[in-house]
Design a protein around this nucleic acid. Structure first.
Lengths: 285, 285
DNA sequence: TACTAGGGATAGAAAAACTAAACATGGTCT
DNA sequence: AGACCATGTTTAGTTTTTCTATCCCTAGTA
């Protein structure tokens, strides 16, 4: 006849996760986005946790939230614990060995990785490869990706990228000097707003050019193929169309990008299929 | 227009907790007890996690379960992470500083701690002290107790305990030699079945005696106070009744118990009120 | 042969989590 | 000023998850 009814309740795990995300990202709205729930849900979670602990975790005001001292004190502990949990979960999933999920920028997923997928799938029979497009590199300590392909300073080097304008051969005939760019639409990705200014600066052309922005690089590329304008091309993404002749380079200058494409991996040890995939990606370039 | 719908699902936290408990305790039934849910719930959780990870975690058979290699590999990681989470949660709760929960054996909670509570409460104004009776010491890395009072080898020494028979003065008049114990009911706690044999061996009396067992020491004590028999007394628990004269010691021999009463605390740093409570308990003895 | 102890499956109930929409608050832009 | 805009809050209602209760199965044990 054990006596336990009045046992103190364990901490609410989901509320802790919401707290961790909100504290780390510095806002309920951002936490809600990361957790793929509505901001109201995060708000409720935080309140649940505050009630459980009997402590105020955040100072709220109209501009956002700020951690209290108590909140700041436990944040590193909670973050570390969730990192550990995430790693454990991944180790678990990796043990299955037959599912492989790759994260990449939408543009790289569609224009660089996608063409290579058939060969990768053929080289890894029995392995299901799924691709997720993300705007930002995921935290591989937490999120269950086997591999993340992003331009950046961290990870295993995969390929150098470079910047140069591209357009249809017809349009190219009208472009002789960089100043001619002022007379045609200059296409680009809204996320890479610095690409045009960067190239123009090195090319010694006009300080800036005008043209429509696209939220997806693939859309801008499609427009360029339509002859709708000059696209600031990224070598790795437009290579197939240069090869086929659908696009040409009206100006020879190529500006190397500081951040090469790199592969981020979860902590060692990597499962066999992931290691093989990495090798394939590296030798292909 | 971020592209995230096909984002991989995060690991199910409650399922991970169920797995950890089941693996650590070596059975779904025991895990269910620890988590205060039904065994079926644990079974479902484990299956959920197995589906999520795509790995079999346990070999099931009619006698129980055994971890698979994959399960055994991640268990330490998961356990460590939950320890961390538990510590973080406690740190959080400790920050409140005005709630203090103590775990103790049912007998010690009722007969040793309870009489001291009024003084403790008076010495710690504004602090809510709650007491939880547990058969076994809780894992203070996980469960949110500020203090656990248990006889044992670990923790801060509080008091030495000793064993000796006690009974009402009337009954004591009929007891002159240890052999006389065979003629009266000998009361004891069903959990401390070794108390009588231990004392009898040192007293050189009969090898064993007979009498009703009680699942709660307090019940046995009440019976002894009614004159229903001789109770194997624990010094710390019967002291008040010896003092008042309600009970006496028919035989002078006191056998010291190997395990003194000790206080277990969560990892440092202890909040002020806990530290003060500990000091009060120590100086009182 | 019954009995026990462990686990599995299922349906229905209970609880938790989530959403949507309306509200508040304090900045910033025109 | 006044109209946004971004942030967090609240509430009611819904959806989803979680849990229990129950019955079943299996392999040891008395």
């Amino acid at each position: 006849m054990p006596v336990d009814p009045p046992r103190p309740k364990p901490p609410p795990l989901t509320a802790l996760r919401a707290f961790e995300a909100a504290a780390r990202l510095g806002g309920f709205a951002r936490a809600a986005e990361e957790l793929a729930v509505s901001p109201g849900a995060v708000s409720q979670h935080i309140r649940t946790l505050e009630d459980w602990a009997g402590v105020t975790l955040f100072i709220r005001n109209a501009q956002g939230v700020r951690l209290t001292a108590a909140g700041a004190r436990v944040l590193p502990l909670v973050s570390e614990a969730f990192d550990g949990l995430g790693q454990a979960a991944q180790t678990l999933r990796a043990a299955a060995g037959d599912v492989l999920s790759i994260a990449a920028l939408p543009s790289f997923a569609q224009l660089w990785l996608s063409p290579r997928l058939p060969r990768l799938r053929a080289a890894l029979p029995g392995v299901t490869i799924s691709v997720t497009a993300l705007e930002r590199p995921p935290n591989l300590l937490r999120e269950p990706f086997s591999l993340a392909l992003f331009p950046g300073a961290q990870g295993q080097y995969l390929a150098q990228d470079a910047l140069f304008p591209v357009c249809t051969p017809e349009l190219a005939r009208r472009l002789h000097r960089t100043e001619d760019l002022l007379s045609v639409p200059c296409l680009g990705d809204t996320i890479w707003t610095e690409d045009w200014p960067l190239w123009l600066q090195r090319a010694g052309g006009p300080a800036q050019v005008s043209g429509p922005g696209f939220s997806l690089y693939a859309l801008a590329l499609a427009e360029a193929l339509n002859g709708a304008g000059v696209l600031m091309g990224r070598k790795l993404l437009v290579a197939p169309h240069l090869q086929s002749g659908a696009l040409v380079r009206p100006f020879p200058l190529a500006v190397p990008l500081p951040d090469p494409l790199r592969a981020l991996t979860p902590p060692e040890p990597l499962p066999g299929p992931v290691r093989r995939l990495l090798d394939l990606l590296r030798e292909d370039l």
